[in-house]
Design a protein around this nucleic acid. Sequence first.
DNA 1: TCTAATTTTTAAACACTGTTCAATTACATT
DNA 2: AATGTAATTGAACAGTGTTTAAAAATTAGA
Lengths: 207, 207
Amino acid sequence: MGVAERKEREKEVLREQILAAAKTLFLEKGVEKTSIRNIADLIEYSPGSIYHYFKDKNEIFHALHQGGFQQLMSRMEVLVSIPNPMTRLKAMGSIYVEFALENPDMYDLMFIKEAPMEHVSSSNDEQWKEGFGTFNFLRATIEECIQEGYFQGHDEEALSFLVWSTVHGMVSLQIRRRCEVVLAQRQGTIVKDGLNEFFSILDKQSS
Amino acid sequence: MGVAERKEREKEVLREQILAAAKTLFLEKGVEKTSIRNIADLIEYSPGSIYHYFKDKNEIFHALHQGGFQQLMSRMEVLVSIPNPMTRLKAMGSIYVEFALENPDMYDLMFIKEAPMEHVSSSNDEQWKEGFGTFNFLRATIEECIQEGYFQGHDEEALSFLVWSTVHGMVSLQIRRRCEVVLAQRQGTIVKDGLNEFFSILDKQSS
DNA sequence: TCTAATTTTTAAACACTGTTCAATTACATT
DNA sequence: AATGTAATTGAACAGTGTTTAAAAATTAGA
Protein backbone atom coordinates (compact mmCIF):
# COMPACT_ATOMS: atom_id res chain seq x y z
CA MET A 1 0.00 0.00 0.00
CA GLY A 2 1.65 3.22 -1.14
CA VAL A 3 -0.83 5.29 0.82
CA ALA A 4 1.57 6.32 3.51
CA GLU A 5 4.10 7.24 0.86
CA ARG A 6 1.59 9.33 -1.06
CA LYS A 7 0.52 11.14 2.11
CA GLU A 8 4.15 11.72 2.94
CA ARG A 9 4.60 13.18 -0.51
CA GLU A 10 1.55 15.41 -0.17
CA LYS A 11 2.79 16.59 3.18
CA GLU A 12 6.10 17.42 1.56
CA VAL A 13 4.29 19.43 -1.13
CA LEU A 14 2.57 21.60 1.44
CA ARG A 15 5.83 21.96 3.34
CA GLU A 16 7.45 23.25 0.16
CA GLN A 17 4.51 25.57 -0.43
CA ILE A 18 4.96 27.06 3.01
CA LEU A 19 8.67 27.43 2.37
CA ALA A 20 8.10 29.07 -1.02
CA ALA A 21 5.55 31.48 0.40
CA ALA A 22 7.82 32.27 3.35
CA LYS A 23 10.74 32.89 1.03
CA THR A 24 8.70 35.23 -1.15
CA LEU A 25 7.54 37.23 1.84
CA PHE A 26 10.86 37.14 3.71
CA LEU A 27 12.69 38.49 0.70
CA GLU A 28 9.96 41.00 0.02
CA LYS A 29 9.31 42.44 3.46
CA GLY A 30 11.99 40.91 5.65
CA VAL A 31 11.75 38.10 8.18
CA GLU A 32 10.70 40.28 11.07
CA LYS A 33 7.89 41.98 9.20
CA THR A 34 6.49 38.77 7.78
CA SER A 35 3.88 37.17 9.99
CA ILE A 36 2.72 33.58 10.11
CA ARG A 37 -0.69 34.93 9.12
CA ASN A 38 0.86 36.51 5.99
CA ILE A 39 2.33 33.16 4.99
CA ALA A 40 -0.93 31.37 5.74
CA ASP A 41 -2.89 33.90 3.68
CA LEU A 42 -0.62 33.42 0.68
CA ILE A 43 -1.05 29.64 0.58
CA GLU A 44 -4.71 29.91 1.59
CA TYR A 45 -4.43 27.91 4.79
CA SER A 46 -5.11 28.86 8.38
CA PRO A 47 -2.23 30.14 10.52
CA GLY A 48 -2.46 27.13 12.82
CA SER A 49 -1.77 24.70 9.98
CA ILE A 50 1.76 25.94 9.58
CA TYR A 51 2.58 24.71 13.05
CA HIS A 52 1.97 21.16 11.90
CA TYR A 53 4.80 21.46 9.40
CA PHE A 54 7.22 23.68 11.32
CA LYS A 55 7.80 23.92 15.04
CA ASP A 56 7.91 27.72 14.87
CA LYS A 57 8.90 30.67 12.71
CA ASN A 58 12.58 30.00 13.35
CA GLU A 59 12.37 26.54 11.85
CA ILE A 60 11.08 28.09 8.63
CA PHE A 61 13.95 30.56 8.72
CA HIS A 62 16.47 27.75 9.14
CA ALA A 63 15.09 25.71 6.29
CA LEU A 64 15.57 28.67 3.94
CA HIS A 65 18.95 29.43 5.47
CA GLN A 66 20.12 25.97 4.46
CA GLY A 67 18.78 26.39 0.93
CA GLY A 68 20.82 29.56 0.55
CA PHE A 69 24.05 27.73 1.28
CA GLN A 70 23.21 25.15 -1.33
CA GLN A 71 22.69 27.91 -3.90
CA LEU A 72 25.99 29.58 -3.07
CA MET A 73 27.79 26.25 -3.07
CA SER A 74 26.48 25.38 -6.52
CA ARG A 75 27.71 28.70 -7.87
CA MET A 76 31.16 27.85 -6.55
CA GLU A 77 31.30 24.63 -8.55
CA VAL A 78 32.65 26.32 -11.67
CA LEU A 79 35.79 27.15 -9.70
CA VAL A 80 37.17 23.62 -9.76
CA SER A 81 38.18 24.17 -13.37
CA ILE A 82 40.56 26.99 -12.41
CA PRO A 83 43.95 25.44 -11.75
CA ASN A 84 45.83 28.51 -10.47
CA PRO A 85 44.87 28.94 -6.81
CA MET A 86 45.31 32.73 -6.79
CA THR A 87 43.11 33.14 -9.87
CA ARG A 88 40.65 30.78 -8.23
CA LEU A 89 40.71 32.77 -4.99
CA LYS A 90 39.88 35.98 -6.82
CA ALA A 91 37.13 34.31 -8.85
CA MET A 92 35.73 32.99 -5.58
CA GLY A 93 35.60 36.53 -4.25
CA SER A 94 33.79 37.72 -7.36
CA ILE A 95 31.22 34.92 -7.15
CA TYR A 96 30.66 35.57 -3.47
CA VAL A 97 30.09 39.29 -4.00
CA GLU A 98 27.94 38.63 -7.04
CA PHE A 99 25.76 36.19 -5.13
CA ALA A 100 25.39 38.64 -2.26
CA LEU A 101 24.45 41.61 -4.43
CA GLU A 102 22.08 39.60 -6.62
CA ASN A 103 20.35 38.01 -3.63
CA PRO A 104 20.78 40.62 -0.91
CA ASP A 105 17.91 39.37 1.19
CA MET A 106 19.01 35.76 1.02
CA TYR A 107 22.54 36.85 1.88
CA ASP A 108 21.14 38.85 4.76
CA LEU A 109 19.31 35.76 5.91
CA MET A 110 22.45 33.65 5.72
CA PHE A 111 25.17 35.90 7.11
CA ILE A 112 23.79 39.02 8.71
CA LYS A 113 20.45 38.42 10.34
CA GLU A 114 20.28 37.70 14.00
CA ALA A 115 19.29 34.07 14.20
CA PRO A 116 19.06 31.56 17.02
CA MET A 117 22.43 29.93 16.44
CA GLU A 118 22.24 27.73 19.51
CA HIS A 119 19.88 25.53 17.54
CA VAL A 120 22.64 25.31 15.01
CA SER A 121 25.58 24.22 17.12
CA SER A 122 23.55 21.58 18.93
CA SER A 123 21.63 20.22 15.96
CA ASN A 124 22.60 17.85 13.22
CA ASP A 125 26.02 18.67 11.82
CA GLU A 126 24.94 17.52 8.35
CA GLN A 127 22.74 20.60 8.10
CA TRP A 128 25.87 22.70 8.05
CA LYS A 129 27.77 20.73 5.48
CA GLU A 130 27.13 23.46 2.94
CA GLY A 131 28.27 26.44 4.98
CA PHE A 132 31.13 24.44 6.38
CA GLY A 133 32.00 23.14 2.94
CA THR A 134 32.18 26.57 1.31
CA PHE A 135 34.52 27.87 3.99
CA ASN A 136 36.68 24.77 3.77
CA PHE A 137 36.91 25.26 0.02
CA LEU A 138 38.25 28.76 0.71
CA ARG A 139 40.74 27.33 3.20
CA ALA A 140 41.92 24.72 0.75
CA THR A 141 42.40 27.36 -1.94
CA ILE A 142 44.42 29.57 0.38
CA GLU A 143 46.44 26.58 1.51
CA GLU A 144 47.30 26.01 -2.15
CA CYS A 145 48.21 29.68 -2.54
CA ILE A 146 50.62 29.40 0.37
CA GLN A 147 52.17 26.27 -1.13
CA GLU A 148 52.75 28.17 -4.37
CA GLY A 149 54.61 30.93 -2.54
CA TYR A 150 51.88 33.48 -1.91
CA PHE A 151 51.17 34.81 1.60
CA GLN A 152 54.54 33.97 3.07
CA GLY A 153 54.56 33.66 6.84
CA HIS A 154 50.77 33.73 7.11
CA ASP A 155 48.51 31.44 9.09
CA GLU A 156 46.14 29.67 6.73
CA GLU A 157 43.15 29.64 9.08
CA ALA A 158 43.37 33.24 10.25
CA LEU A 159 44.05 34.42 6.72
CA SER A 160 41.02 32.56 5.41
CA PHE A 161 38.92 34.25 8.04
CA LEU A 162 40.39 37.61 7.01
CA VAL A 163 39.58 37.06 3.34
CA TRP A 164 36.05 35.96 4.13
CA SER A 165 35.65 38.97 6.42
CA THR A 166 36.81 41.35 3.72
CA VAL A 167 34.20 40.35 1.16
CA HIS A 168 31.55 39.91 3.83
CA GLY A 169 32.34 43.36 5.20
CA MET A 170 31.90 45.06 1.84
CA VAL A 171 28.64 43.42 0.91
CA SER A 172 27.14 43.70 4.38
CA LEU A 173 27.91 47.41 4.63
CA GLN A 174 26.24 47.78 1.25
CA ILE A 175 23.24 45.61 2.08
CA ARG A 176 22.64 47.25 5.42
CA ARG A 177 23.11 50.62 3.72
CA ARG A 178 25.97 52.02 5.73
CA CYS A 179 27.67 53.47 2.65
CA GLU A 180 24.91 55.83 1.69
CA VAL A 181 25.72 58.64 4.07
CA VAL A 182 29.46 58.38 3.67
CA LEU A 183 29.87 57.37 0.04
CA ALA A 184 26.77 58.79 -1.57
CA GLN A 185 28.26 59.72 -4.92
CA ARG A 186 29.62 56.29 -5.93
CA GLN A 187 27.02 54.11 -4.26
CA GLY A 188 26.56 51.87 -7.26
CA THR A 189 30.16 50.90 -7.88
CA ILE A 190 31.84 51.05 -4.50
CA VAL A 191 31.68 47.32 -3.77
CA LYS A 192 33.12 46.36 -7.16
CA ASP A 193 35.76 49.07 -6.80
CA GLY A 194 36.60 47.87 -3.31
CA LEU A 195 36.88 44.30 -4.56
CA ASN A 196 39.30 45.41 -7.26
CA GLU A 197 41.42 47.19 -4.66
CA PHE A 198 41.42 43.90 -2.77
CA PHE A 199 42.51 41.96 -5.86
CA SER A 200 45.25 44.48 -6.43
CA ILE A 201 46.51 43.92 -2.88
CA LEU A 202 46.29 40.14 -3.28
CA ASP A 203 48.40 40.34 -6.43
CA LYS A 204 51.20 41.92 -4.43
CA GLN A 205 51.33 38.94 -2.07
CA SER A 206 53.60 36.76 -4.19
CA SER A 207 56.94 38.39 -3.37
CA MET B 1 11.70 83.77 35.69
CA GLY B 2 13.74 80.64 35.22
CA VAL B 3 10.60 78.52 35.21
CA ALA B 4 10.61 77.71 31.52
CA GLU B 5 14.29 76.87 31.79
CA ARG B 6 13.71 74.60 34.75
CA LYS B 7 10.88 72.83 32.99
CA GLU B 8 13.05 72.47 29.93
CA ARG B 9 15.72 70.95 32.14
CA GLU B 10 13.26 68.58 33.76
CA LYS B 11 12.03 67.53 30.36
CA GLU B 12 15.60 66.84 29.34
CA VAL B 13 16.07 64.70 32.46
CA LEU B 14 13.13 62.50 31.57
CA ARG B 15 14.34 62.29 27.99
CA GLU B 16 17.68 61.05 29.26
CA GLN B 17 15.93 58.61 31.56
CA ILE B 18 14.04 57.16 28.63
CA LEU B 19 17.26 56.94 26.65
CA ALA B 20 19.11 55.26 29.51
CA ALA B 21 16.32 52.75 30.05
CA ALA B 22 16.09 52.07 26.32
CA LYS B 23 19.84 51.56 26.10
CA THR B 24 19.81 49.13 29.01
CA LEU B 25 17.00 47.11 27.48
CA PHE B 26 18.25 47.34 23.87
CA LEU B 27 21.67 46.06 24.86
CA GLU B 28 20.15 43.43 27.12
CA LYS B 29 17.42 41.98 24.93
CA GLY B 30 17.92 43.64 21.56
CA VAL B 31 15.99 46.45 19.91
CA GLU B 32 13.33 44.23 18.37
CA LYS B 33 12.51 42.41 21.59
CA THR B 34 12.32 45.56 23.67
CA SER B 35 8.85 47.06 23.80
CA ILE B 36 7.81 50.59 24.60
CA ARG B 37 5.97 49.12 27.55
CA ASN B 38 9.22 47.59 28.80
CA ILE B 39 10.91 50.99 28.69
CA ALA B 40 7.90 52.66 30.32
CA ASP B 41 7.86 50.05 33.10
CA LEU B 42 11.54 50.58 33.85
CA ILE B 43 11.19 54.33 34.33
CA GLU B 44 7.77 53.94 35.98
CA TYR B 45 5.83 55.98 33.44
CA SER B 46 2.97 55.05 31.17
CA PRO B 47 3.72 53.87 27.61
CA GLY B 48 1.95 56.90 26.15
CA SER B 49 4.32 59.32 27.90
CA ILE B 50 7.26 58.18 25.85
CA TYR B 51 5.57 59.48 22.71
CA HIS B 52 5.80 63.01 24.08
CA TYR B 53 9.56 62.79 24.07
CA PHE B 54 10.17 60.66 20.99
CA LYS B 55 8.16 60.46 17.80
CA ASP B 56 8.42 56.68 17.77
CA LYS B 57 10.67 53.77 18.65
CA ASN B 58 13.00 54.57 15.76
CA GLU B 59 13.74 58.02 17.12
CA ILE B 60 14.93 56.42 20.34
CA PHE B 61 17.10 54.05 18.32
CA HIS B 62 18.62 56.95 16.40
CA ALA B 63 19.41 58.95 19.50
CA LEU B 64 21.42 56.02 20.86
CA HIS B 65 22.94 55.40 17.44
CA GLN B 66 24.33 58.92 17.48
CA GLY B 67 25.71 58.49 20.99
CA GLY B 68 27.62 55.43 19.83
CA PHE B 69 29.41 57.40 17.13
CA GLN B 70 30.44 59.99 19.68
CA GLN B 71 31.92 57.24 21.86
CA LEU B 72 33.86 55.72 18.99
CA MET B 73 35.02 59.14 17.82
CA SER B 74 36.34 60.01 21.26
CA ARG B 75 38.33 56.78 21.37
CA MET B 76 39.92 57.76 18.08
CA GLU B 77 41.23 61.02 19.52
CA VAL B 78 44.43 59.47 20.86
CA LEU B 79 45.43 58.75 17.27
CA VAL B 80 46.29 62.37 16.45
CA SER B 81 49.52 61.93 18.41
CA ILE B 82 50.76 59.22 16.05
CA PRO B 83 52.74 60.92 13.28
CA ASN B 84 53.37 57.92 11.03
CA PRO B 85 50.21 57.36 8.97
CA MET B 86 50.72 53.60 8.60
CA THR B 87 51.21 53.15 12.33
CA ARG B 88 48.18 55.34 12.84
CA LEU B 89 46.11 53.30 10.37
CA LYS B 90 46.90 50.09 12.21
CA ALA B 91 46.18 51.67 15.59
CA MET B 92 42.88 52.85 14.17
CA GLY B 93 42.04 49.27 13.21
CA SER B 94 42.88 48.07 16.69
CA ILE B 95 40.72 50.73 18.34
CA TYR B 96 37.84 49.98 15.99
CA VAL B 97 37.96 46.25 16.70
CA GLU B 98 38.42 46.87 20.41
CA PHE B 99 35.40 49.15 20.51
CA ALA B 100 33.29 46.65 18.61
CA LEU B 101 34.22 43.67 20.79
CA GLU B 102 33.88 45.61 24.04
CA ASN B 103 30.51 47.06 23.03
CA PRO B 104 29.10 44.43 20.69
CA ASP B 105 25.51 45.50 21.12
CA MET B 106 26.26 49.16 20.58
CA TYR B 107 28.32 48.23 17.53
CA ASP B 108 25.44 46.12 16.32
CA LEU B 109 23.15 49.10 16.74
CA MET B 110 25.53 51.35 14.81
CA PHE B 111 26.70 49.20 11.90
CA ILE B 112 24.73 45.99 11.61
CA LYS B 113 21.13 46.42 12.70
CA GLU B 114 18.49 47.05 10.13
CA ALA B 115 17.47 50.64 10.67
CA PRO B 116 15.32 53.09 8.76
CA MET B 117 18.12 54.89 6.98
CA GLU B 118 15.83 57.06 4.88
CA HIS B 119 15.31 59.16 7.99
CA VAL B 120 19.04 59.54 8.03
CA SER B 121 19.77 60.76 4.53
CA SER B 122 16.95 63.26 4.58
CA SER B 123 17.42 64.58 8.10
CA ASN B 124 19.88 67.07 9.51
CA ASP B 125 23.38 66.39 8.27
CA GLU B 126 24.83 67.56 11.57
CA GLN B 127 23.51 64.37 13.15
CA TRP B 128 25.94 62.46 11.04
CA LYS B 129 28.99 64.53 11.70
CA GLU B 130 30.37 61.80 13.91
CA GLY B 131 29.94 58.85 11.58
CA PHE B 132 30.99 60.94 8.65
CA GLY B 133 33.90 62.34 10.62
CA THR B 134 35.28 58.95 11.63
CA PHE B 135 35.26 57.72 8.05
CA ASN B 136 36.86 60.93 6.81
CA PHE B 137 39.57 60.51 9.41
CA LEU B 138 40.27 57.08 7.92
CA ARG B 139 40.33 58.57 4.44
CA ALA B 140 42.74 61.31 5.48
CA THR B 141 45.04 58.73 7.08
CA ILE B 142 45.05 56.57 3.97
CA GLU B 143 45.62 59.66 1.84
CA GLU B 144 48.72 60.33 3.95
CA CYS B 145 49.82 56.72 3.56
CA ILE B 146 49.61 57.06 -0.21
CA GLN B 147 51.59 60.29 -0.10
CA GLU B 148 54.30 58.50 1.84
CA GLY B 149 54.57 55.80 -0.79
CA TYR B 150 52.26 53.09 0.51
CA PHE B 151 49.45 51.66 -1.60
CA GLN B 152 50.87 52.63 -4.96
CA GLY B 153 48.32 52.90 -7.73
CA HIS B 154 45.36 52.62 -5.37
CA ASP B 155 42.25 54.76 -5.26
CA GLU B 156 42.01 56.44 -1.89
CA GLU B 157 38.23 56.28 -1.57
CA ALA B 158 37.76 52.67 -2.65
CA LEU B 159 40.73 51.61 -0.54
CA SER B 160 39.29 53.34 2.50
CA PHE B 161 36.05 51.48 1.96
CA LEU B 162 37.99 48.22 1.66
CA VAL B 163 39.86 48.81 4.92
CA TRP B 164 36.68 49.72 6.74
CA SER B 165 34.98 46.65 5.28
CA THR B 166 37.77 44.38 6.44
CA VAL B 167 37.54 45.30 10.11
CA HIS B 168 33.77 45.56 9.94
CA GLY B 169 33.59 42.13 8.34
CA MET B 170 35.61 40.48 11.06
CA VAL B 171 33.78 41.98 14.00
CA SER B 172 30.35 41.56 12.45
CA LEU B 173 30.93 37.88 11.67
CA GLN B 174 32.01 37.49 15.28
CA ILE B 175 29.13 39.51 16.75
CA ARG B 176 26.51 37.76 14.66
CA ARG B 177 28.17 34.46 15.54
CA ARG B 178 28.97 33.17 12.09
CA CYS B 179 32.38 31.86 13.18
CA GLU B 180 31.11 29.38 15.73
CA VAL B 181 30.23 26.57 13.36
CA VAL B 182 33.22 27.02 11.12
CA LEU B 183 35.94 28.12 13.52
CA ALA B 184 34.82 26.60 16.78
CA GLN B 185 38.24 25.80 18.20
CA ARG B 186 39.76 29.29 18.11
CA GLN B 187 36.63 31.33 18.70
CA GLY B 188 38.19 33.62 21.25
CA THR B 189 41.23 34.75 19.28
CA ILE B 190 40.17 34.61 15.65
CA VAL B 191 39.38 38.32 15.28
CA LYS B 192 42.69 39.40 16.82
CA ASP B 193 44.52 36.81 14.72
CA GLY B 194 42.72 38.00 11.63
CA LEU B 195 43.59 41.60 12.42
CA ASN B 196 47.24 40.65 12.75
CA GLU B 197 47.13 38.94 9.36
CA PHE B 198 45.68 42.18 8.03
CA PHE B 199 48.47 44.22 9.60
CA SER B 200 51.01 41.87 8.12
CA ILE B 201 49.52 42.42 4.67
CA LEU B 202 49.43 46.19 5.17
CA ASP B 203 53.12 46.15 6.08
CA LYS B 204 53.89 44.68 2.67
CA GLN B 205 52.24 47.61 0.90
CA SER B 206 55.24 49.95 0.97
CA SER B 207 57.22 48.46 -1.89
C1' DT C 1 -20.21 -0.37 2.62
C1' DC C 2 -20.40 1.30 7.21
C1' DT C 3 -18.04 2.47 11.22
C1' DA C 4 -14.06 3.54 13.98
C1' DA C 5 -9.57 5.58 14.28
C1' DT C 6 -6.38 8.84 12.69
C1' DT C 7 -4.72 12.75 10.57
C1' DT C 8 -5.33 17.40 8.94
C1' DT C 9 -7.33 21.82 9.32
C1' DT C 10 -9.56 25.38 11.46
C1' DA C 11 -11.20 29.22 14.37
C1' DA C 12 -10.94 31.13 18.62
C1' DA C 13 -8.28 32.50 22.38
C1' DC C 14 -4.04 34.18 24.97
C1' DA C 15 -0.61 37.26 25.83
C1' DC C 16 1.97 40.13 23.65
C1' DT C 17 3.43 44.29 20.27
C1' DG C 18 3.64 49.76 18.44
C1' DT C 19 0.89 53.55 18.38
C1' DT C 20 -3.04 56.93 19.00
C1' DC C 21 -6.09 59.69 21.59
C1' DA C 22 -9.63 61.50 24.62
C1' DA C 23 -9.73 62.34 29.33
C1' DT C 24 -7.51 63.35 33.50
C1' DT C 25 -4.10 65.41 36.41
C1' DA C 26 -0.52 68.81 37.61
C1' DC C 27 1.11 73.13 37.40
C1' DA C 28 2.36 78.21 36.19
C1' DT C 29 0.39 82.62 35.12
C1' DT C 30 -2.98 86.10 35.55
C1' DA D 1 -8.78 81.33 43.19
C1' DA D 2 -9.62 80.74 38.30
C1' DT D 3 -7.76 79.91 33.93
C1' DG D 4 -4.96 78.05 30.38
C1' DT D 5 -1.31 75.05 29.23
C1' DA D 6 1.55 71.20 29.37
C1' DA D 7 2.33 66.46 31.01
C1' DT D 8 0.45 62.06 31.93
C1' DT D 9 -2.58 58.42 31.78
C1' DG D 10 -5.20 54.27 30.52
C1' DA D 11 -8.06 52.48 27.26
C1' DA D 12 -8.48 51.25 22.59
C1' DC D 13 -6.96 49.66 17.83
C1' DA D 14 -4.86 46.72 14.85
C1' DG D 15 -1.40 43.86 14.61
C1' DT D 16 1.98 39.87 16.29
C1' DG D 17 3.54 34.46 17.55
C1' DT D 18 1.68 30.55 19.44
C1' DT D 19 -1.60 27.10 21.67
C1' DT D 20 -5.57 24.33 21.76
C1' DA D 21 -10.07 22.28 21.57
C1' DA D 22 -13.16 21.26 18.23
C1' DA D 23 -14.36 20.15 13.48
C1' DA D 24 -13.56 18.22 9.10
C1' DA D 25 -11.43 15.06 6.06
C1' DT D 26 -9.32 10.93 5.20
C1' DT D 27 -7.89 6.22 5.95
C1' DA D 28 -8.26 1.38 7.66
C1' DG D 29 -10.69 -2.41 9.38
C1' DA D 30 -14.83 -5.43 9.74
